[in-house]
Amino acid sequence: MSEAPQGDQDPRPEGGPESVTSPEDLVKLLAEQFARADVSLRELQTRADRAGGTRLPRSTCADMLAGRRFPKKAVMVAFLRGCRVPDHQLPAWERAWERVRVNQLPPGSPEIAAQVMTAPGTTGTTRATGRRRRRAALLTAVTVLAAAVVLSVVIAQRATPQRAASKEVPDHIVNPAHIVSDDGRAFPRGGWSRFTVTVDPANTGVRLIRRLDAGVGLQHATITVNGTPAAEWRPLLEDGIYKWRNQIVTLPPDLTTGRRSLTIVNTCVSTSGFNEFLYTVQHQVNGVWSTADTVDIGRRHTASEAAHDYRVVGEDWAETQTFTYPPRKEAWSVQ
């Protein structure tokens, strides 16, 4: 998507908040505002604390940007203010939130009545007119809610055996098998790391897989192979809960085919810095992918670093972290 123009003009007149019809649409636009702001979740939390009012815990923002939790309207507004979205644009975002929220609610929900009470663009301000209509709507909603509660109790009693037999693990439960302790290194913008790995010269493709701490968001680095620009580690959104990720980058075949060794250089270009804990190198030979080499980074793995001629310039962190991967394994790896 294109960059936002300067000034007070709405940067997305056709694809902005007014076009939002689903939670996915809203999450996408919020993520774009976060990327444009070029700020960490820690800084957003600090800005909200300074402003007073609604707080912005990093975990809450991470859940919102990952689509794991639909935000409260006040949280969304505080997030947008932290991203320096102008106040005159906020009513459009609030209307978008209300549309999505109403679409998520079941028919007859009292929250729908609450949405009806607030006219579009009033940003939650109570108006003196229409009080009788609001009281009637609220009374209707309460009646419907009471009937729904009775019905839900009956349904729940009948469905208890089926639910008890379910073995699905909720997303918020941490599997001990997904907890990993590993040491690594990090460096700021302008810093870089280098290492050399071996692959089969008959390869028709090579992939780099980096274990990273995703608790530091928007890490961005360029990659060269034997001195030639090859790819980049694209920025990922911060996850303050499940911090381990395996990021995958595919290298151009013309830079890897026929070569037995590859010298990889990662140069950080993001203000958030760049961290690395473990590199797994996969190559494709005769149409089959397999592991060609691994480079374990950190002070406890200096033997692996030495074997791969590892070097880091500008290092500003080298410690051990104990984090967990997401509950579902399909979320462990990202492109």
Rank of each mutant, 00 (worst) to 15 (best):
V142H: 10
L145N: 11
A48N: 03
H220M: 03
N286R: 07
P106F: 02
T263S: 00
V100I: 07
V206I: 03
R58E: 15
A147C: 11
T267M: 00
P235L: 08
R299I: 08
A74N: 08
V206R: 01
I112G: 06
S166C: 11
V77L: 13
A148M: 12
G240W: 07
A146L: 13
T324S: 15
W317S: 11
R260H: 11
Q45E: 15
W97E: 03
V174Q: 12
V269N: 01
E319H: 10
T118E: 14
V153S: 11
R311S: 13
T140N: 09
L212V: 08
S59I: 02
V269M: 02
T250V: 10
P253R: 10
F70A: 06
A165W: 06
G191K: 04
S272A: 14
G52W: 10
T224I: 02
R299F: 13
T198V: 01
A186Y: 08
R185E: 13
E276S: 14
Q219S: 07
A137D: 10
P253K: 09
L139H: 12
A159M: 09
H283V: 00
V153P: 01
T125M: 13
P327A: 13
R300L: 14
C83D: 05
S270F: 06
L30N: 04
R127H: 13
R163I: 09
G240Y: 07
L80I: 03
H178S: 12
F277R: 03
G7Q: 14
A214M: 03
A4H: 10
V174K: 11
M64D: 03
G215V: 09
S270Y: 06
Q335T: 09
R95F: 02
A96P: 05
A318T: 11
W317D: 15
S19T: 12
V154C: 12
L218P: 00
G191C: 08
Q219K: 09
Q45W: 01
L139D: 12
H88L: 05
A78D: 04
F79S: 04
G240N: 12
R185T: 13
R58I: 10
P252M: 09
P91K: 09
R132Y: 07
D63S: 05
G287K: 01
E24Y: 06
Y279C: 00
T198W: 00
S22Y: 06
G240K: 10
Q9Y: 11
T196W: 00
G215Q: 05
L105P: 00
G16M: 05
L237R: 15
T291S: 14
L139Q: 14
P86C: 05
Q115V: 12
Q157W: 13
P17I: 02
E319G: 04
R58Q: 14
N246E: 13
D239M: 03
P170K: 09
G215W: 02
Q6V: 13
A156V: 11
V75L: 07
R81I: 06
D63E: 11
R207C: 02
V154E: 13
L90T: 06
C268Y: 03
W289K: 03
L138R: 11
R42M: 06
D8P: 14
V216A: 08
N246G: 04
A306R: 14
P201M: 05
